[in-house]
Design a protein around this nucleic acid. Sequence first.
DNA 1: TACTAAGTAATAACCATTCTTGTCAAGTAT
DNA 2: ATACTTGACAAGAATGGTTATTACTTAGTA
Lengths: 130, 130
Amino acid sequence: MTPQRMAIMKYLDGNTCHPSAADIYGALRERFPTMSLATVYNTLEALKEKGAVIELSIDRGKKRFDPNPEPHHHLMCIRCKAIVDVFVDFPLTLPDGQTQGFEIVGNRVDFYGICKSCSDEQKGTTERNQ
Amino acid sequence: MTPQRMAIMKYLDGNTCHPSAADIYGALRERFPTMSLATVYNTLEALKEKGAVIELSIDRGKKRFDPNPEPHHHLMCIRCKAIVDVFVDFPLTLPDGQTQGFEIVGNRVDFYGICKSCSDEQKGTTERNQ
DNA sequence: TACTAAGTAATAACCATTCTTGTCAAGTAT
DNA sequence: ATACTTGACAAGAATGGTTATTACTTAGTA
């Protein structure tokens, strides 16, 4: 267990911002100036295999990581890409006629919306423009 | 309306394979050797703005396009990335306490599984290995 | 010490996507 | 009808996120 790896794990522990690899890299490079982005990816991959983090694909073009192992869904702001957790359990089972021969192994529910601060910003802009 | 654009639209019409931009490009380049991948992207973007196609983010790292305007969900094979449509309506509303100030604008339900042909392949392999 | 294995950093490579720019066609004014 | 303007378009270049490769370092071990 190297200092870099420990720092990444500590940064993730309890983090609810669902950071990307670049976010983590950016947050830790000050304390670990020699750490490379590849190390972050490697560590995240290792943590993912251990089940310590979950890789989210809610944000196209960027992997986001979630250290919360409890099953839950996500809500993403379409403006600022902030992601928050949603702890509501939806009963989602497909009727046999709809599985089309697939063996279902999981599902995912994502909500999209506009977060408070983005919504406030827009209001401010609108007011200024009037 | 250029021939390329018409060909892309025709290829998509009635297509239930949820092709990626590269899929479309690969399918049409023989008939339109001078067409570029960027043209496919441009056309898909234009069609998306018109509401003629929907962009799926079920497949990380690749945009997939769906010409079916009817609201529905998707089921993807985690092996071969095949995507099929799921026409089941789930009532998904977040209780006020869970929206965290977000103005919800949409949601998405994706199912993941292993399709019949991938499942059969695996069985064959297992048998051979025994 | 020498050997091994794991971890790291740096860089290059890769792929999907987006940006930029030159070209062409249609419309408009002279 | 001709020159000018505008806008759409395709092609190639560029970008950004991610992965692969390589060599170096460190720790553990015989």
